[in-house]
Design a binder for these strands. Structure first.
Length: 464
DNA sequence: TCGACCTTCGA
DNA sequence: CGAAGGTCG
């Protein structure tokens, strides 16, 4: 009896339901990771995510090796590879933890074809606190507004306690050959880029737990008051670890509540941020397919949730403007600091993400998907649900009827949240010398007019 | 049905 | 303090 455990967005040994089931039910384990850049349902990884994946896989491989289990690495279309590896190892069981985006359709097909061959193929709870089909309004529809969504989640039975790392694992006798991790060339070729990522981040399960503990010990007490100021390191920095399932949200949830009980610290605001991650994934689950394809335009990978915005008069991206935004050379300090923090470290402070996104979509009037694609490529925490969701939220074309007239003013924001200039000085001290790319007042008026145009006559607009 | 409400605001 | 318009119960 051999269980093939297919690792995907769950690169950990703790709270891994599929691995736990394999340890309990089968005599031997085969651990597999598939780099799938072929299937239509998977979105090709961005550069920063590829770097993270390389590091995370090498740590998972070491952690598994310490328990006597090799990690088999294969590249190709998931359905073909999993079938091949199951065959090569004479697997009787194939177990995995659920995914909730478009990939779940691929998973469903694979499960059916495995079962046809008499293999016990099963999926287990994945990287969410609540299964998306358990959260709905009184009329059974998906929530479109965050606050009632999260209230409903909190009224559900608490998420299951995280599972421990299995105490004993036995390697299956037949271990299929693995490709070499280095041969996948996940590391960026651009000199120095990976250096900036490595300076700030340590991927892997051990580091993830360390970040959570440090956050709960040191940062949670002041989190609510300090989190909006980008010059202060007030966040948990857990987002890339959650993205790859190096830590599960159930572990975060239960440890946070334990800390609250122990020390009385308020973790409500922090868990509510985990709630936003949850909301994005649930929303994507209910708008199946928007995370993939459907775009004629090259480089844009996602569709919008709200069809009313299909005819929105975005300006054709001016190459100079777009480059100035990407490089952090707009002449607006907090925008430039944010964009350079992103490029140099693979991350951007949450509030600054909103400011830079508002600047691109409102002041430059460039399609949110252009910015989404840049963030996808450069963020270590780039997530197929959260990234498009948050871009649409900021640009006012998400599921909720957002107040589109709410245009962030980067100067006002900088004055409010970086008054002492700590953040701008750290990342873009020369920004003050640069000419400002746009007139904030004129471009604000222009954006409001554009939004007005689809509101008044959504059907009269011709397709772009 | 209807009223309270909507993460992150600009002026 | 006003800026829409939809969501939710």
């Amino acid at each position: 009896m051999t269980a093939l455990i297919w690792f995907r967005d769950d690169l950990s040994l703790a709270d891994h339901a599929a691995l736990q089931a394999g340890a309990e039910e089968a005599g031997g384990i085969v651990a597999l990771y598939v780099l799938d850049e072929e299937s239509a349902e998977t979105r090709p990884l961005g550069g920063a995510a590829r770097w993270w994946l390389h590091e995370s896989l090498s740590r998972l491989r070491a952690d598994l090796a310490a328990l006597g289990i090799p990690l088999v690495l294969r590249r190709g279309a998931s359905e073909r590879i999993v079938a091949e590896v199951a065959e090569e190892s004479r697997a009787t069981h194939v177990f995995w933890n659920r995914r909730y985006g478009s990939e779940r359709h691929l998973d469903a097909r694979l499960k059916a074809s495995m079962r046809e061959r008499g293999i016990d193929a099963r999926s287990f709870r994945g990287g969410l606190l609540f299964e998306p089909w358990t959260v709905a309004t009184a009329t059974g529809t998906p929530y479109r507004v965050y606050t009632p969504f999260w209230r409903a989640c909190l009224a559900l039975p608490a998420p299951a306690a995280p599972l421990p790392v299995p105490e004993t694992l036995t390697a299956a006798a037949l271990q299929p050959a693995s490709e070499a991790l280095d041969a996948w060339q996940l590391q960026p070729t651009r000199p120095n880029w990976a250096g900036g990522l490595a300076d700030r981040w340590t991927p892997g399960e051990t580091a993830a737990l360390g970040s959570l503990d440090r956050f709960l010990d040191e940062r949670a007490p002041g989190y609510r008051e300090r989190r909006d100021f980008p010059a202060i390191d007030a966040g948990s920095e857990l987002s890339p670890h959650l993205r790859w399932g190096e830590i599960s949200p159930r572990t975060v949830w239960h440890r946070a509540l334990a800390a609250a009980t122990e020390t009385g610290v308020d973790v409500g605001t922090f868990l509510s941020e985990v709630g936003w991650r949850e909301f994005a994934s649930h929303t994507l689950f209910h708008h199946t397919g928007v995370d993939r394809a459907g775009n004629a335009e090259p480089g844009l990978h996602v569709r919008g949730i709200n069809p009313q915005f299909d005819g929105f008069p975005w300006r054709r991206p001016d190459a100079n403007e777009l480059a100035a935004w990407q490089r952090g050379e707009t002449g607006f300090g907090v925008v430039d600091a944010g964009m350079r923090e992103l490029w140099q470290s693979g991350f951007m402070h949450n509030r600054v993400r909103m400011i830079t996104a508002s600047f691109l979509t409102k002041n430059l009037l460039i399609d949110w998907r252009v910015g989404e694609a840049w963030f996808w490529d450069t963020l270590v925490d780039a997530d197929a649900a959260s990234n498009p969701f948050n871009w649409q939220w900021v640009s006012g074309c998400g599921a909720d009827a957002a107040p589109y007239f709410r245009v962030f003013n980067p100067e006002t924001q900088q004055h409010k949240f970086d008054r002492d200039g700590g953040y701008v000085d750290r990342w873009a001290p020369d920004s003050v010398m640069l000419p400002q790319l746009v007139d904030l007042r004129e471009t604000r008026v222009r954006a409001l007019a554009a939004y007005e145009s689809i509101k008044l006559a959504p059907r009269e607009r011709s397709a772009p």
